[in-house]
């Protein structure tokens, strides 16, 4: 039946088709924008200071990995006091551990080595470990992101 149409009918039909398609696309973009934003997860909020235990649970010269904000944190107590580092290696996010005999922090995955103040001193790690602040309040050890 299209062959009987007047000549100007063809461009008008195309124009109307494009108008429908264009406005549908525009409405889809505007209406879909909130949904795209929803799917994008929000940044994780630090939960503030976390009580990780009693002072007695951390003898001098010991190290423990605790979980703060669902991430591992290495808490070391030396004669000078407490230090806490994110236990995630800055190379590829393996969990690091404290070695008492060599007195350094080591990453088991690719032999990354950090000094006791978190500096990257050997192996592939590109950056020092992220440090967290530790305070002791009436016998409780409290870790908070700096």
């Amino acid at each position: 039946m299209g062959s009987n149409d007047e000549p100007e009918e063809v461009p008008r039909r195309d124009f109307l088709g494009m108008a429908v398609g264009g406005s549908a696309a525009a409405f889809a973009v505007a209406g879909g924008y909130p949904f795209l934003r929803f799917v994008d997860p929000p940044a994780q909020q630090p939960s503030g200071p976390v009580n990780i235990g009693k002072l007695e649970e951390f003898p001098v010269g010991s190290a423990r990995t605790v979980v703060v904000d669902e991430r591992p944190v290495l808490v070391i107590r030396t004669g000078d006091g407490f230090r806490a580092f994110s236990a995630l290696c800055t190379h590829l996010q393996c969990v690091v551990a404290y070695s008492a005999e060599r007195n350094q922090i080591e990453c088991p995955c690719h032999r990354g080595i950090y000094s006791m103040d978190g500096r990257n001193i050997g192996g592939p790690p590109p950056r020092p470990l992220q440090e967290l602040s530790v305070t002791v309040n009436t016998g409780s050890v409290i870790v908070s992101a700096v």
């Binding site: 108008a19 429908v20 406005s23 549908a24 525009a26 409405f27 209406g31």
Partner: peptide, 8 residues
Amino acid sequence: LAGLLLLT
């Protein structure tokens, strides 16, 4: 935009 779509 929905109005525009309805119109077309």
